[in-house]
Amino acid sequence: MQLLESLFHYNFLQNAVLAALLASIACGLTGAYVVSRRMVFLSGGISHASFGGIGLAFFLGIHPPLGALVFGVASAMLIQYLSDRQDVRNDSAIGILWSAGMALGIVFIYLTPGYVPNLMTYLFGNILTTSPADLWLLGLSAVLAVLAFIVFYPLVLAVAFDQGYARVRRLPAGAVNYLLMALVALTIVTSIRVTGIILVISFLTLPQAIAAIFTRRLSGLMLWSVALSAAGSIGGILLSYTLNLPSGAVIIFTFALMFILVRLTWWAIRAWARRAEN
């Protein structure tokens, strides 16, 4: 009861819940795409490469999320370009961008005179300090993700499932790849304030791993992921507020707990069904 009262009372808690909801929509949808196409490592690369942009923004004295956005989208485009050319191993390219981006960020932050505030926020996220500007950016990626996956769903499915066949059928596979890569980068970068660079991957993979039990289709995976992600992240925020623990970490613990519970239940049901059959 006290929790609900605080929720109505404190603006920062309302912002946090709204941020969790928007991040769940954006990450739930794009994460389903990322997991289906086995692009999880790539998403980690984009997320870490964007730290270079955050460092540079601190150094130049501009808004850090802006730097992250430029670096994140640019590295995503570069990875897509290199994987189309096929003369560089895709995973090597990701590894290089991953570490070079982080290194660049560290150097720039070292060069920035004085104390760098909020650095930990970018690494580990803090949903309780979400600003209205963060919310607008998150809202933008959520709206773009919803629009992209509604309007282009059949095209996305065709290209994601069988790119070779899509090309033979003259579907714009290249454009779809680049467009969705940009969307993945935008989603990651705008979610960093909520989850942090290191933990953003969990929003793109954990709800999807739970959702996979409930559905056989990409669209189902998307919807279930959004719902499970919203439930887990809002639950996590309230739990972290009650226990006075870091929000990002508690949200991910909540996801992991949901994953274990759902899996165990699933196995139990299957084992029971098999015994009933025999």
Partner: peptide, 14 residues
């Protein structure tokens, strides 16, 4: 990949 047999066939009509 999360896709049903029917949806695979439908991608052939996109």
């Amino acid at each position: 990949f999360p896709v049903t047999a029917e949806d695979v066939v439908r991608t052939g009509l996109v």
